[in-house]
Each structure stands twice: as C-alpha cells, then as structure tokens.
C-alpha cells in the first residue's frame, strides 16, 4: 500500500457509531403502532383505512411541498411525516370527512413543524396540533364517534355512539346509580379495545404492547410514560376515594380516551419532550396532572392532547432546571 493510491477520510473522533438513525427510530415507532392500527382497521373497517391513507399522504405531500417552497432539501426520507400522519389519523374519529383530515394534516406539518424549521425545531407535537386544530375548528364532526364493529349493511351512515369519558361526564357523573354505566362500558372492552372513540386509541392493550416494544428498542425512555400514567392513576385513586359516584375509577381513566396513545406515543415524542431523566419525570407528571384537571373539571371530556401540548411549551424550561449534576461539581 503506497500513499498515492489511497484517499483517506478524516473526521473528528469517534470513528464508530451505534448505527442509530432518525429513520430507524421512525420505523420502530411505526412498527410499534401497527398492532393498534390494524385493530382499528378491523374494528371500524374501510373508513379507518382510507382516513389513515389520506392523513399519511397529506402529511408527506405537505412536507415535500413546503420544504421545496422553503428551498430546503427534501427531508421526507426520515419518515417523520409518515409517523405524524399515522398518529394524526389514529386520534381522529374514523368517520371524519376526509377534507377535514387533510386540513389537519397540512396544519400539523406546515404550521406546527416546517415553519419552525422542520424536524428537530418544532416546539409542539405536530400530530397533536393537527388534532387540536380540528377539535376547535370542527367541534361537531370531531365528536361523531362510530360504534365499534362493521357498519350495518342497509345504512350508509354508521351508527354513532358515545365514548366512555363523554358518557360519564354528560350522563352518569354524580348520579345516585352508576351501575348502568359500567354495564354499558365493561372494563374489559375498554382494555382490549371494543369501544367507540378515535380509531387508534381504542385498544389500551395493543398500545401498551407497542409502548413496551418502544422501551425494549430504547426508542422511548421509561420515565415519561410511567410518570404520566402513574400521576393519572394517583389522582384518579384520590378522587375516586373521595366520591366514587362523582369520579370515574382509575382503571377507566387509564384505559379510555387517548391516554394510552398519548402517554406512549405523543408525550414521548423526542423533539417535544425533555432530554434529561428528571425532566422526563416532571414532564410526564405534568401531563398527568393537566390531563386529569381537564378531564375532571374542564369543558372537554378528554384532555390528553391539550395536556401534552401545554407541557410541550414548558420543555425548554424543564430541560434547563433538571440539568443533571455534572461529574466533579458540587451538588448546589
């Protein structure tokens, strides 16, 4: 080997790499979402499939278009737009008119992500911004929940049904007799996903499975989901202990609404969550408190999206104040 025939590469150390990549992480998230997604497809049929396809296509399209307009290199290869599309679809009612889904997707990608500079610079979770935008803009369409199961053959319109949280808040809370609620919404149905709701949020069990997969693949740190779910449980236990007629039991809080999807897939979004271990704990606990405040006392039956978005805003502050003690410095 002589010096002439080689052209070496030089760079700063380290010269080895774990092989982790943004695309790999996004792929893992998609794999983790797949069981819950397929369950949603099975439960709600073609509308859910079409909705997901629309959201993903709209997200990728919006990303490609906006990046081209902003003269940035086409960054859709990292797969983050696909993940946003899937997450957005999963937290929408399956019967939502498709044009609304497209609006949500465009808002999520362009307004919540690209105007801030693209992946890595967005302060808020894009999918949640899209969802909240739709919730506020189309309040009626966003609560048209389809009853689980295939649509009746004779009617093009699907049967609508209430979600457990909405039913509790509007009909059952504070009643003397609440057994009817628990008959209408057996816990086991909620856990395994035989309930009305956003089509990707219904199966707590499959989302939990996906979440554990993410932890096993080290794509998610355990602190955020554990503290999120833990705080929700704790507050629910206290309230339930105070007045079990007025407040829903902890298990119902855990397994209904968007909590599982939110805790495992939205609150753990890397860009919009803290980077320190203690920060993730604070973040998770904060999300839990806000979720319960909105669920129990707020105007909406569900508060996961608002809770996470509010905590997103606090992330820079949390990062700053939960800095680990540097090796060799005193504790102060």
């Amino acid at each position: 080997m002589t010096e002439k025939n080689i052209n070496l590469a030089i760079s700063s150390s380290p010269h080895a790499h774990s092989g982790a990549s943004v695309r790999g992480i996004m792929l893992t998230v998609i794999i983790a979402l797949t069981p819950a997604l397929l369950w949603g497809f099975w439960l709600f049929g073609w509308p859910a499939v079409v909705l997901t396809a629309t959201c993903v296509a709209a997200c990728v399209g919006a990303e490609a278009l906006s990046r081209r307009l902003m003269k940035r290199n086409l960054g859709i290869g990292d797969g983050s737009a696909v993940v946003t599309g899937i997450l957005l679809a999963m937290c929408l009612p399956p019967s939502l008119p498709l044009f609304m889904a497209v609006i949500g997707a465009v808002v999520a990608i362009v307004l919540a992500k690209q105007v801030f500079g693209g992946l890595g610079y967005n302060p808020f979770n894009p999918a949640l911004v899209g969802r909240v935008f739709l919730t506020i803009s189309f309040p009626f369409a966003m609560i048209q929940w389809t009853a689980p199961g295939p649509p009746p053959a004779d009617d093009t319109h699907a049967v609508t049904a209430a979600t457990p949280l909405a039913a509790w808040e509007t009909e059952w809370s504070g009643q003397d007799e609440t057994a009817g609620f628990f008959e209408e919404f057996p816990l086991v149905d909620l856990f395994f996903g035989n309930q009305a709701g956003s089509f990707g949020e219904v199966s707590a069990f499959l989302l939990l499975l996906g979440g554990l997969f993410l932890i096993w693949r080290r794509c998610v740190h355990w602190q955020t989901p554990v503290f999120y779910l833990g705080t929700v449980t704790l507050i629910a236990i206290i309230l339930y202990g105070i007045d079990s007629q007025r407040y829903l039991s902890p298990a119902y809080h855990l397994f209904s609404g968007g909590l599982m999807l939110g805790a495992w897939f939205m609150a753990t979004d890397m860009v919009t969550s803290p980077v320190t271990s203690r920060g993730m704990m604070v973040f998770g606990a904060g999300c839990g408190v806000l979720t319960m405040v909105i669920r129990v006392w707020g105007g909406y039956p569900e508060g996961v999206s608002f809770a996470i978005l509010l905590m997103n805003a606090a992330v820079p502050l949390i990062n700053r104040y939960t800095r680990p003690r540097v090796f060799g410095t005193s504790k102060s």
């Binding site: 590469a9 693209g118 890595g120 890397m270």
Partner: peptide, 23 residues
C-alpha cells in the same frame, strides 16, 4: 461511518450516556 449531520431531535440518548453527566 461517514455522516451527514441533521438537526438534533432531542432523543436524550447523549444525556443518558454522558459519563460526565453533561447535556
């Protein structure tokens, strides 16, 4: 590993693995 640097996505892995507990 020839790399192309992209913006930080805030995964927090570097914070977890830093032996000096830096960020």
């Amino acid at each position: 590993h020839l790399f192309e640097s992209t913006p930080c996505i805030g995964c927090g892995r570097c914070v977890m693995y830093c032996p000096m507990r830096l960020m």
